[in-house]
C-alpha cells in the first residue's frame, strides 16, 4: 500500500478580535491508500480544523494556514490554484459533516444536489447523472430511490439525510473520504446502521477514510490507525490495538479510564476523572498542551519543552508514537529522548 496523503508541519491559526487562536500546531502524519484513520479529540483539539485545512475550507479571514504542506498524490494541496483545488474537492477528496441538515440545501431536491457533482466532475449528462444518482441512493440503503430523488431534504429523517450525504460524497469515487463527526447527531441504533454502511462501502470502493470523532468506542470498531489530538497537536498515534490496549500517553489513558462501560458491573465505583478544564487555545503553545491537567507532569520540563512525537523506548512497535516525556507505566522520565540542552535543566529539578 502506497502513501496517499502526507501532512507536514501543518499550522492553522485564527486571528480574532480576542487574539490569535492557535488551532492546529505542527501536525504531521502519513495516510496510506485504503487506510481508515480515526482522529479522536475533544472540542478545541484541532481535529476538525486540521481536516478543513486539508480541504482548504478554513474561513479566511479570520483563519489562515500559516505553515505546512499537504501532499496528496504528489501535489501540495495548499499550493494549488483555486480552480484546480475545486476539482480535487468532491472528486478526489470528499467530506461529510456532523449535521446533514445544514450541509444539504433545503430548497433543492436531493436529485439536483446529487447530480450536481456528477455533471461537474464526471461530465455526465442529465439522464446518466440521474440514473447514477438513483443507483447511489440504492447503494446507501434508501428504498425506492428513483422516486426519492424528487424529495427535499426535510422529507428525510436524520439517519436518511446522513445516507444521502454519504451517497453524495461517494458519487465520484473519491480516494479519500473525510468524515467529521458524522454520527454524533444520530441515535445509537441509527449510528450503528451508518457505521455498518460505511464499513460495507469501504470494502466496496476501497477508499481511505479519515473518521473524526470524540467517541472512542466508535473509532475502536472502525479505525486501523488511531490518532489522538489534544490542544492542536497529535499526542498519540498508532495501530488501534496498541493505542487502546497499550496506551502510552497520559491523556489517552485518562480518557479511557474516565469512560464507564455498559458491559461491566461498576456499582459504587467512582469514575476516574481528568482534572481541570480544556486548554484555552488563545495561549501560545509552549510545552505540552496537557501539562496543566496531567497527573504525571514534570515541572520545568513538560511546561517548557514540547516532547517530540516519536516511538518511546518503551514502545512495542515503531508505528506507535506518542508525545510525552514520561513512561506512563512507571511514571519515570524518558531522559534519553531529551535534547542535551534541556537535560541539564531537568537534572536540577
Amino acid at each position: 500500500m502506497g502513501v496517499l496523503m502526507e501532512v507536514k508541519h501543518l499550522v492553522t491559526r485564527f486571528h480574532t478580535q480576542e487574539g490569535i487562536v492557535y488551532a492546529v500546531n505542527d501536525v504531521s502524519y502519513k495516510l496510506n491508500e485504503g487506510e481508515t484513520l480515526g482522529v479522536v479529540g475533544e472540542s478545541g483539539s484541532g481535529k476538525s480544523v486540521h481536516a478543513l485545512s486539508i480541504m482548504r475550507l478554513i474561513p479566511s479571514p479570520p483563519g489562515r494556514i500559516e505553515n505546512g504542506e499537504v501532499f496528496f498524490q504528489g501535489r501540495d494541496l495548499l499550493q494549488l490554484p483555486n480552480d484546480q483545488m475545486r476539482l480535487v474537492r468532491g472528486a478526489e477528496i470528499a467530506m461529510i459533516f456532523q449535521d446533514p441538515m445544514t450541509s444539504l440545501n433545503p430548497v433543492l431536491t436531493i436529485g439536483t444536489q446529487l447530480t450536481e457533482s456528477l455533471k461537474l466532475h464526471m461530465g455526465m449528462n442529465e439522464k446518466d447523472a440521474s440514473a447514477r444518482a438513483a443507483e447511489l441512493l440504492g447503494m446507501v440503503g434508501i428504498p425506492d430511490a428513483q422516486r426519492r430523488l424528487k424529495n427535499y431534504p426535510h422529507q428525510f429523517s436524520g439517519g436518511m439525510r446522513q445516507r444521502v450525504m454519504i451517497a453524495m460524497a461517494l458519487s465520484c469515487n473519491p480516494k479519500l473520504l473525510i468524515a467529521d463527526e458524522p454520527t454524533t447527531a444520530l441515535d445509537v441504533t441509527i449510528q450503528a446502521q451508518i457505521i455498518e454502511l460505511v464499513k460495507k462501502l469501504r470494502d466496496q470502493f476501497g477508499m481511505a477514510i479519515i473518521w473524526i470523532s470524540h467517541d472512542l468506542g466508535v473509532v475502536a470498531g472502525l479505525a486501523d490507525t488511531v490518532q489522538v489530538m489534544y490542544g492542536g497537536r497529535i499526542v498519540e498515534r498508532g495501530p488501534a490495538g496498541d493505542v487502546f490496549k497499550d496506551t502510552r500517553h497520559p491523556y489517552t489513558l485518562g480518557l479511557l479510564k474516565s469512560l464507564p462501560r455498559h458491559d461491566r458491573r461498576q456499582q459504587n465505583e467512582r469514575l476516574i476523572q481528568i482534572e481541570g478544564q480544556p486548554p484555552d487555545m488563545r495561549i501560545p503553545p509552549v510545552g505540552c498542551p496537557f501539562y496543566v491537567r496531567c497527573p504525571m507532569r514534570i515541572e520545568g520540563l513538560c511546561d517548557k519543552q514540547m516532547p517530540p512525537l516519536i516511538p518511546g523506548p518503551e514502545s512495542g512497535s515503531p508505528d506507535h508514537i506518542k508525545a510525552c516525556w514520561v513512561d506512563v507505566r512507571t511514571g519515570k522520565t524518558l531522559t534519553e529522548d531529551i535534547p542535551a540542552s534541556v537535560q541539564a535543566e531537568v537534572q536540577n529539578v
Partner: peptide, 27 residues
C-alpha cells in the same frame, strides 16, 4: 437488546468480534 448491542465499546478486540443487532429503519 438491540440498543445495548449498538453501543460502541472502546476496545478494538471486542468491537471486531461483536455480533451486532442492527435495527432497520427509523422510529
Amino acid at each position: 437488546h438491540s440498543l445495548l448491542s449498538a453501543v460502541p465499546v472502546p476496545d478494538p478486540d471486542i468491537e471486531r468480534n461483536r455480533q451486532r443487532i442492527i435495527l432497520t429503519g427509523d422510529v
